[in-house]
Design a protein around this nucleic acid. Structure first.
Lengths: 249, 249
DNA sequence: TTTAAAATTGCGTTATTTTGCATTATTTTA
DNA sequence: TAAAATAATGCAAAATAACGCAATTTTAAA
């Protein structure tokens, strides 16, 4: 058995059982404990696991690297955004706002899609800069550093001049009465402009955003063409939205 | 048996069994282990498999984490940029171009500095978005995805309208005769504009950039106010630059 | 077709990696 | 605090790999 195989075996077992025990592995693989320890040390060095007394446990990342954007519930978000991939077509002009759901979406855009994407979000732009066939345009302006998006006059001006086929709009909060709402005034203004510049507006978010509201209005439901959540479109909690004329994907 | 056939055989076996062992292959194909090793090395070079001690395993594409920017020789670069920190003062308006040396610089900007920074580089902006007291303005435009910077008319227009106290300009190549030069035409144009918009121009780079040149001119030495390398300012290889009137830090 | 250059292959030699064991240190447990 | 379990270290044997070289085959050019 090759060492590389062993490492794979160890990692698989670790994933299945959340931990591995040195003596068990030695027995299972018919090797000395020394060898297992050396393996665990190597994997630890590579930050693939964390060696502890008696074995190893799963690695938990704890770096505070700016560039290391932590997406909570990434798997659920993947489920959501995959539904929206069908809305993408070659030749489209697309506007993307920020937010972690949109970031997951950006990751999953097929590498053969040829389109033009405007964005004002640094992480989204970073992600899309890896895409081989996207024409990427960053909407410059003053940075709202916390959200890592641009805001202000310059942004508005660029948006006023473009016409996109579709806009993927991140959502902080959505409710039947208030529609889309935002916590920050400036971002709400910019999102308004994004909607104005797009033929079609799609918003993707987890169902826990449903029926919540924030201080600043972005638009009401009638201005949204499509919403996407992890729920089945027929789900009861979405019924009111469907009745309001929003297409639920 | 042709080499190409052998390679196909190896790849097929690898696909079937998830691994191949050098000695087994040598036996099966009736060839020396040396030849098999050479085959495996070639296939490894082509990224068709991953050679390991004793054989080879399937190639797993390491998910290129966009957000994980690898800075080569980071320690050396830290040494360089620390010298330039003394050029920073509260209230300055600063332009920063891209490049890994500038990125290291951005990381080390003291957290109590109050200044306004314009940049056209995504990684630099990501880094500076963590800074509590910097007013950050991103210069938008079409993305040059490889360098993760914006280029084109929009960038030029923004630059034409601002006046900065100091510009930190990354350098691809520098020589006595040609001055600063760039590999890409568009970036060279933008850098020209950055220089125009700044009272003072500082360039930081490793000494291995000295006396090299690229196709597109940015400026000649007379337009640079200060250069910073890891070398002692009195170093002989910098003498010509000092004579040309550049301040060497 | 002939000839020179380039690529391929195996062998001997040397270098590197892997592994288990003995020994010594460290951590855990009772 | 002592005993037991686990780890680290140095070492040597075995396996594997790399290197230089020469013989052979293939390819390309004349």
């Amino acid at each position: 058995m090759l060492k590389a195989e062993r490492h794979k075996f160890i990692m698989t077992k670790l994933l299945e059982e959340q931990k591995v025990v040195t003596t068990d592995l030695a027995l299972a693989l018919d090797l000395s404990e020394d060898t297992i320890r050396r393996d665990l040390n190597e994997l630890d060095d590579k930050k693939l696991l964390e060696k502890v007394y008696g074995g190893a446990i799963q690695f938990i990342e704890k770096s505070v690297d700016v560039f290391n954007i932590n997406i909570s519930a990434e798997e659920e978000k993947k489920k959501i955004v995959k539904k929206a991939l069908s809305l993408l077509h070659d030749g489209q002009v697309i506007i993307m706002s920020g937010g972690s759901t949109n970031l997951v979406f950006a990751k999953l855009i097929p590498s053969d899609l040829k389109a033009t994407i405007y964005t004002y979000s640094l992480p989204i732009a970073m992600q899309l800069s890896q895409h081989p066939n996207i024409d990427l345009i960053f909407i410059g302006g003053k940075m709202q550093k916390k959200a890592m998006v641009t805001i202000g006059m310059d942004v508005m001006q660029v948006l006023s001049k473009i016409k996109a086929d579709i806009c993927f709009l991140g959502a902080s909060s959505i409710s039947i009465k208030q529609g889309l709402t935002e916590i920050g005034y400036e971002v709400s203004i910019v999102k308004k402009a994004m909607i104005e510049s797009s033929d079609r507006v799609v918003s993707m978010f987890s169902s826990n955003k449903l029926n919540t509201k924030m201080p600043h209005s972005v638009c009401d439901l009638s201005q949204l063409d499509t919403i996407v959540t992890e729920l089945d479109p027929e789900d009861l909690s979405l019924e009111e939205y469907r009745k309001a004329g929003v297409f639920v994907l």
